[in-house]
């Protein structure tokens, strides 16, 4: 079962709702103001946000008028094309040794994502070590330990309340001496407006920079698909603290569409690399923009 099917399955309910409405809308074949109003409603209820929605609609309107489109099927293709252009098609290329730091606010699924990422890399024949640098939340390292066990990778952890940067330091030392390909760093969930917690992230970043200056460094932010426009502000603030390279969009197996990733790509040019579609260890897959759009509209 490929990415496409998983996404379709995950978004089935959504598609029934949104896709149906959209189909009906296009079938009418009348592309007047009412059509665009309704389209706006549909896009907004997918959390795509006002700015990006208006942009999509304006571009679509322009192209449809220019090419004098009246065929509903073609119009639908045009819409997909506009959305696809926004999302782009980028993939994460591993070039070990690699250090991946995973950040995000509380409860988006960082620890789970680390477990699943470890599994993906192991399956690709890479060696992996995970660093339990969330020393804040109660039982976070125990949770990561269970995932490390499932993915059969090593874990470096200290006790609760210890210095996260020290955990990262140990993980990097261990990786260097054992020539491990990928280090995955789990960080504490932090609400992005807490300044001192952001400083802690910067410190982790500095440790990585100092200890592994030649390693490939990737900073991923985990976003919950149910999150609305606040995701923009999450990405913005984390991006300022540590440069973000990409997004992992989790919990796409619900009815939420996570359309805010279009707004993020549109405004800040940060791509989605992975999507989470369930609680099983294999329920994380590489992002495919075309299937995603197919899945949500």
């Amino acid at each position: 079962m490929g990415f496409f099917q998983k996404i379709i399955d995950g978004l089935k309910k959504t598609k029934q709702r949104i896709g149906f409405k959209l189909n009906e809308l296009f079938k009418r074949g009348i592309f007047n103001d009412d059509f665009y109003d309704e389209l706006e409603f549909i896009l907004l209820s997918a959390d795509i946000g006002e700015d990006t929605t208006i942009d999509i609609i304006e571009t679509l309107r322009e192209r449809m008028t220019e090419d004098n489109i009246s065929d509903p099927k073609k119009a639908n293709e045009y819409l997909k094309e506009v959305m696809l252009e926004i999302l782009g098609d980028e993939h994460l290329e591993l070039n070990p040794p690699t250090v991946i730091t995973v950040v995000g606010v509380n409860g988006v699924g960082k620890t789970t994502t680390i477990g699943k990422l470890a599994n993906i890399f192991i399956k690709k024949g890479k060696s992996v070590v995970v660093a339990a640098a969330d020393t804040f939340r109660a039982a976070a390292s125990e949770q990561l330990e269970v995932w490390a066990d499932r993915a059969k990778v090593r874990i470096i952890k200290h006790e609760e309340g210890s210095d996260p940067a020290a955990v990262v330091f140990d993980a990097l030392s261990s990786a260097k001496s054992r020539k491990t390909d990928v280090v995955l760093v789990d960080t504490a969930g932090r609400l992005h407006n807490k300044k001192n917690l952001m400083e802690e992230l910067k410190k982790i970043n500095r440790v990585v920079e100092r200890e592994c200056p030649n390693a490939q460094r990737i900073n991923l932010i985990v976003l919950d698909a149910t999150t609305g426009q606040n995701a923009l502000s999450q990405v913005d603030v984390f991006n300022e603290a540590i440069d973000l390279d990409g997004i992992v969009l989790t919990k796409l197996d619900g009815t939420a569409k996570g359309g805010v990733v279009l707004a993020i790509k549109h405004d800040m040019d940060i791509p989605v690399y992975f999507v989470g579609v369930g609680e099983g260890i294999d329920d994380l897959m590489e992002f495919d923009a075309e299937s995603y759009i197919e899945g949500i509209i």
Partner: peptide, 28 residues
């Protein structure tokens, strides 16, 4: 989660229909 987007309504409706909730707590 108070950062939830448009889907919050769907979620709350489903939980309410299934369990007849007595109240909501907003976090974060």
């Amino acid at each position: 989660d108070s950062m939830t987007g448009q889907d919050a309504v769907t979620v709350a409706k489903s939980f309410d229909e299934a369990l007849d909730i007595t109240g909501v707590i907003m976090t974060k």
